[in-house]
Computed example of a mutant assay.
Amino acid sequence: MAKPRIGVIISSTRDTRFADKPAQWLMDKVKNHPDLDFELIDLRDANLPFFNEPASNLWMPSSDPNAVAWQEKLAGLDGFIFVVAEYNRSITGALKNALDQAYKEWNRKPFSALAYGSMGGARALEHLRLIGIELQMVPLRNAVHIGGGDFFKVSPLGANAPMSEIEGNLEGSLKATLDELSWWAKTLQNART
């Protein structure tokens, strides 16, 4: 069986977003992963309209071609890592809309996050996990959080240092996340087939 394919989804679409910096750091760390293949997916490129279908694609096909293309992209993936910005104690509107644009393509697939913000994106990730349960996804226990002093060290809101300045604080949680993601992605990939 082929290695599970993991989509790394950048969930902020703002022009001034911070997400590109941690997303690139993550992609550099996973580029030669022995058990998983990773693909960077930017919600900016999806060009999704606000959800306006008569029903979820669980019940009837979507009519918007961009939504259908998004569903097809998700269908080819076996799990996800969301790059999660915390906006007002939750996920971005762009991410919520992207989640709503598909249903069955999320089912029975694991996900984790690289979350950031003053509190490490913990509150946003908590909301994302609840949404994931409704989408029949498997939210993982482990995640990577960039918060507090580390966030302000690498963020343009603070010192804007390179990610290498804080990666020693992130590597343990990244290893735990990838180990857990690998187990669940393989297990669920086998179960879905």
Rank of each mutant, 00 (worst) to 15 (best):
L95F: 00
A69R: 15
N142G: 07
L157D: 07
F152R: 14
K186L: 01
S112W: 00
K21W: 01
S12E: 00
L74V: 09
M119C: 06
P49A: 05
P61C: 03
A69Q: 12
T16P: 10
G148T: 08
P49E: 06
L188E: 11
A23T: 12
I10F: 00
A115V: 05
M1F: 04
I6G: 03
L58Q: 09
A23E: 10
S164E: 15
E180H: 00
K104L: 09
L188R: 04
W106A: 03
E105P: 13
F82D: 15
T177Q: 13
L43E: 00
N97M: 02
R108E: 11
Y103H: 13
E53C: 04
F152H: 15
R17A: 08
G120Q: 11
G132H: 08
G121L: 04
R108K: 12
L181I: 00
A46N: 10
P156M: 12
P162K: 02
G148R: 08
Y103R: 10
Q136N: 14
G168D: 13
E134A: 04
F151L: 02
L178Y: 01
W70A: 00
A113S: 10
V84L: 15
K153H: 06
E180K: 02
D64C: 07
T193V: 03
F152G: 13
V154S: 06
I9E: 15
D150W: 01
I6F: 01
S182Q: 04
